[in-house]
Amino acid sequence: MTEDPRFPYLLRMADSSLILAQRLSEWLAHAPTMEEDMALANIGLDLIGNARTAYTLAGEIEGEGRTEDDLAYLRDEREFLNLQLVEQPNRDFAATMARQFFFDAWHLPTLAALAAGDDADLAALGAKGAKEAAYHLRHSSSWVVRLGDGTEESHRRMVEGVDAVWRYCGELFEFDDVDRALAETGAGPGPGEIEATWRATVAEVFAEAGLEVPPDAVWATGSRQGLHTEYLGFILAEMQYLHRSHPGARW
């Protein structure tokens, strides 16, 4: 097994993007409007594109011949390193936007830090992803503001959506040996860097939306050890079924 910190780092990034994209795809043909249907599908496809690049890169770094498909479809729940935030259910549109906003506000500065870093491959991944994530953040924060500052019902749903996922936001700032190793080589963000940006973005958008930033929770944790909430297993069952039943199936 490789000691290269880029391998687990890329898997974390790719898994989070892929699982969130899988969640977003559940909205297809169910979004509140046709326009929003397209927007959520676009965002999901951006995330899948980013995940594919990261998986391919991770496979090359690992050096054991694993492809993007092997990494996406042939690992089990305990091997997935995605944030617990992204596996949380869609609930209603407001809850989906709360989850998306918290993710985007983390994803954009993370990708931007990689883009500015010293590793050419990670920088390329970050640069392409950051442009997409900037749009994703614009989209999700627009909805947080409109629903938070909308009708009584939309405000209530936005507050409930935030409450439903808030305790999973602590994982966004975890900083372990993998992060430290990457930061020391100049390839990744330093300690506290992403958290400061994230908190500033959340404070700004919530102020405009008329929402209160909840106090820090007893944060849920464990995804970096492959520990997940009860939802991930079902997502993987659906997502991996075809590939495992028909290995190497093509369209």
Partner: peptide, 20 residues
């Protein structure tokens, strides 16, 4: 054309539908 509740979201929807 697109449906949207306001100008900002109309612009975002137009981006998603017509400049993909």
């Amino acid at each position: 054309s697109v449906h949207a509740p306001d100008a900002e979201l109309a612009l975002q929807a137009a981006r998603d539908l017509y400049t993909r």
